[in-house]
Computed example of a mutant assay.
Amino acid sequence: MTDTDVQQGDRPVAQVQIAGLIFAVLLLDRDLVITEANPAAESLLGRSTKKLIGTRITELVDFSQSRLEERLLASDQRLIARGVAAMVGDERKRLNLTVSPLPSNPGWRVISLSDGGRDDMGGEAEMESAVGAPAVLAHEIKNPLAAIRGAGQLLARKVDEKDRPLAVMICDEVDRIARLVDRMQKLGSNTPAAVGPFNLHEAIRNAMATVRAAAPQGVELVEEFDPSLPPVLANQDALEQVLINLLSNAAEACSGKSGAQTGGQIIVKTRFVSGLALSAIRLGNTVRVPIEITVSDNGPGIDPHLEPRIFEPFVTGKKGGQGLGLALVKKLVADMDGRIGHTRDDRAGMTHFRINLPIAK
């Protein structure tokens, strides 16, 4: 490609513009065979452009769950869909999709795809709406807690021995609510922690050591690190908190496999992913997030009915859970201009949480 091909004067040509898009763009022929693909399509579909070209789109993305394939076959039909259930390889996903027919070439169409069901793309407006309720609730609850606890302690000193456990229970419950309020306040904070360059694997090993010390017997934590990764641009304390939450959830999810022929296993993998970017609304620009951390476990996975909402406050599949852990994880990652997503590989029996973060310049 020559400089003339890349740009006309100071204006990039269409091919360069499409290559820079952060969502997948595919050109399909009359038989739904991919003839062109941009770099974002490689990331979403997990194949190189060379392997994508010549492959039928329905061999890569199974739309049978949403009964969309017959509409794709209608080559002259425009289509816009959000949150479409689909299988990409062995992973369940929800996709945003557009199909644009090309009148100049009957039967040909351009299709765009983006992950629209489980990813946090770092949008500040979305995050504010998600955490506003917990922040207000925390403010309203915290003030009277000290008075209630003080009254409980006073009762514990004055009541008869047989009634003292009730007074102690009041203090214990107040302490539990206070811890919950502290988590909600962190969730509602609008001041992100400062970011800087640091060694990614050092932070991961710190988090793994914390969780390993408390993990149920028989749960194995495995490292699959790329030692060539450069420093990441993030907040180390916040990232360690994110990883401790994810690893603790994974340990709990696969603890039931302890003592079985195949024990509980958590794999933490790092790699460099080229071409992946997100729109950071707070910064008003596009941020490339090529550093990827994947936390995988062989537990039973998340209830499919909860999957699209697992990063929302007060949504939980745990008995007695508060539903704030993953909401806080989402916020901390977004504050570092990163993204987090969840997928389930039913064939391999693995649940994956992927974090993508910027690289330190």
Rank of each mutant, 00 (worst) to 15 (best):
A194I: 03
P144K: 02
S189H: 02
L137Y: 02
L180H: 10
P230K: 10
E140H: 08
R157W: 11
V168N: 08
S189A: 02
K186Q: 13
P230E: 12
G150K: 11
V219C: 01
A207F: 04
R212T: 07
S189V: 01
A203M: 07
T210A: 10
N143D: 15
P165S: 00
P231T: 04
M184K: 02
L221V: 01
L180D: 13
G196F: 12
R149V: 09
I204R: 15
L233N: 12
L233A: 12
A194R: 08
C171L: 04
A147L: 04
A207V: 02
L180T: 11
E220M: 12
A209V: 11
L180W: 08
V195N: 15
V211G: 03
A193K: 05
E202G: 11
D226A: 02
L154R: 14
S228K: 09
H201S: 00
E161Q: 06
A135H: 11
L166M: 04
L145G: 07
P231L: 04
N206S: 15
L154E: 15
R157H: 14
I170R: 04
G152T: 11
A156N: 09
Q153R: 13
P230H: 08
R164C: 04
V174R: 00
D172F: 01
A207G: 06
L180K: 05
K142C: 14
N199K: 08
R179E: 15
S228Y: 08
E220A: 11
V174C: 01
R157I: 08
V136P: 07
D175M: 03
R149C: 12
S189Q: 02
V136G: 08
